[in-house]
């Protein structure tokens, strides 16, 4: 009996930590983030696949991770070295909840590397960009 209880307890811990998969529906993802739920979405644009994951909220800050899962064929042919470098890399952003609630376009701003990107984000992608600019 106690083993069954342990298995159920472990199962509950796993389920409670699960992330809601919004597929390709960005609105669903935004809604989940507004409700402080862990969620993920894939944005596919001309063959480039970016996965956005909300890892949860802590101390009025929402941790949102951007991961490049695939780079489009055009980009790969245009700059094969950079395309190979960025695949699998992430950008991890600590976005204040007030920004999430007020600004609906924060994803676009981060993905187009506006000021918000530098302010809230760290990770390999940012370092690659800084290094590229330096050289």
């Amino acid at each position: 009996m106690k083993y069954i209880l342990i298995i159920i307890l472990i199962g509950l811990i796993f389920i409670s930590g699960c992330t809601i998969d919004c597929g390709k529906d960005l609105d669903c993802f935004k809604e989940q983030v507004q409700n402080y739920n862990k969620a993920r979405v894939n944005i596919i644009n001309e063959g480039t696949n970016i996965r956005i994951t909300c890892r949860g909220v802590s101390k009025d800050i929402c941790l949102i991770s951007f991961k490049i899962e695939e780079v489009s064929e055009d980009l790969r042919q245009e700059d094969p070295i950079s395309a190979k470098i960025v695949v699998g890399k992430t950008l991890n952003c600590n976005i204040p909840l007030e920004v999430l609630e007020q600004d609906e376009d924060y994803f676009d701003k981060i993905l187009s590397f506006e000021e918000e990107f530098d302010q809230y984000c760290t990770g390999p992608i940012k370092d690659i960009l800084i290094k590229t600019i330096e050289t």
């Binding site: 991961k67 699998g88 890399k89 992430t90 990770g123 390999p124």
Partner: peptide
């Protein structure tokens, strides 16, 4: 390696 250098999350 992927955790430390690619910065991926636990789900990966």
């Amino acid at each position: 390696k992927t955790l430390t250098l690619d910065g991926v999350g636990f789900e990966d």
